[in-house]
Amino acid sequence: MKTYYSVLRLRLKIGLQYRTAAWAGIATQFFFGIIQIMVFEAFYQHSAHTPPISLKELITYLWLQQAFLAFIMLWFRDNELFNLITSGNIAYELCRPAGIYGYWFARLLSQRLSSAFLRCFPILLIAFCIPEPHRMTLPPSWTSFVLFLSALVLGLLVLVAISMFIYISVFVTMSPAGSTLIFAVVGEFFSGIIIPIPLMPEWLQKVTGWLPFHLTADFPFRVYSGHIPPPEAAMGVLAQIIWLVLLVGTGMFALKKVLRRVVVQGG
């Protein structure tokens, strides 16, 4: 645990070194947020039916997406790990005392945590301060907020567990860019980053329900805005835990498999 903590601290320090990068990132994400909001605003303006999610809730949803981008994006990549795998230097990594799945998991987790830590507060601050109608709202109740926090953390863990499969798949494809791209395209669509899940057609919403992706981004954000009421949210948190166990289990198994292959080949 202590190793993991020091990895995180180091990451945070590295992240802070790049001050221009931090400002640039915040500006970029603010811009993306505002553009998306305007597009939906335009759609909502002459809408014949009442959409299944109100514009107010949607705006909050979109700001949360930007603030916690590092928690939900699958194209976040760790090139060092990729190089390790494709160059065959993975053998050194096998010598470490910590289990490789746990170590990589912590590494990926800390990257996302440090990145989000640096960015979420400024973006949230801006989102709460800008004039109506684009301002972000507070959650409807303390219960919603607490549930949101736990859903966000669990969502992050689920996401890291999913992203572990990107690295595992690189053992097979040997193409980091290819693997990341395919995962990112599929995953981001089904997690509601392209369009929010409530705005998808019924049949597609059902499909996303059966996949774990919506638990990483869509679910926590709708809990926050109260679009998913607390009792239902509690069930969702349970689903997150089940998925997490499932994903980590299969991930560990798959990693062991591919590593064995590397060792046999002599890497």
Partner: peptide, 25 residues
């Protein structure tokens, strides 16, 4: 692999747009 991925990147965006028009007209 990259070609296919590159094909689907704007494809899902377009699909998203299509669904929005399906809902809002």
């Amino acid at each position: 692999l990259l070609c296919i991925g590159q094909f689907f990147t704007p494809f899902v965006m377009f699909a998203g747009m299509y669904f929005l028009f399906e809902r809002f007209g």
